[in-house]
Amino acid sequence: MSRARIYPLWAPWLFLAPFVVLFGVFMAYPLISSIGLSLQQTYGPGTSVSVGLKNYADLIRDPLFWIAVRNTALYTAGSLFVQLPIALGLALLLNRPRLRGRAWFRLIFFSPSLVGLVFVATLFGLILHEREGLLNAALARVWPAFPREFPWLQRFVMPALILASLWMYAGFNMIYFLAALQTVDQTLVEAARVDGAGPWHVFRHVTWPAIAPVSGFVALLSVIGSMQLFELPYILLGGPGPESRGLTIVMYLYQNGFETGDLGYAAAIGWVLALFLIGLALVQRALQREALS
């Protein structure tokens, strides 16, 4: 079906111009210049010397970088294996037919994700306080054997971060699972039940295959977001925390670029992170394709 063009030639470019210009200046240009930047050592934004691949070579031998990688990986594992199963569980409960108050529950569970990470960090700084905090007081009441003055922000930094992000993001991820569950063919579910399948069998053989693509997407987004963790530990601990237990990759990038002033090293850290995440996205896409065919 070919039709004569009835709009002026410039029309699409008029609408595209603001995006293309801004995208070129503030996305494409920084992206390309960051390659060059990562081959330099800088002292603040003004002065720099070219050092070739030294930043990358240093990074591989930098023990702090590997601490940051380990911490970030632990936090990401917490998102994947603690937070996402809880999000899926909440979505399954909310998806039960004839549930009352579904909209209210959804609103409540989702609401923490609107609170900025900085504000979550200030709030959880008080909740996790070893002596005065709400969490230790509540734990002491329901579980008397739990150690008093449990040092969340001194020694159990990673569980504390995972807990705070569980509060913040479980409801957010639940929304995606819920949207996926609502596309599951209910006649298939009914048919399986009539054939005598228990709840686990229905989930395993009917529900899960139907929501697997969205679950893969949610898991990917969750990993990408978790790998970029910065504000939560930075504000909660006021920096990397005791023995750098809260140091993350992006916090290390921030410290090097904007506290030490070496934008080149920061750009190199940025590229290592970016290449890892892009590789992950490509692998996920390939797996998804394979599953479909």
């Binding site: 995208f23 200046v25 503030f26 996305m27 494409a28 240009y29 920084p30 992206l31 210049s33 960051s34 930047l37 800088t42 934004p45 003004g46 990408i224 790998m227 970029q228 910065f230 990759i249 992006v250 990038l253 921030y254 670029g257 904007f258 934008l263 080149g264 920061a266 750009a267 940025g270 590229w271 992170l273 970016a274 995440l277 892009i278 996205a281």
Partner: peptide
């Protein structure tokens, strides 16, 4: 293609070069 490609660029990668650009 540019729009779709930009979706996979993580924001922290752009921090240092954007700061240098804003400075300039």
């Amino acid at each position: 293609a540019l729009v779709l490609g930009a979706l996979i660029v993580p924001a922290p990668l752009l921090l240092a070069p954007t700061y240098a650009l804003i400075h300039r």
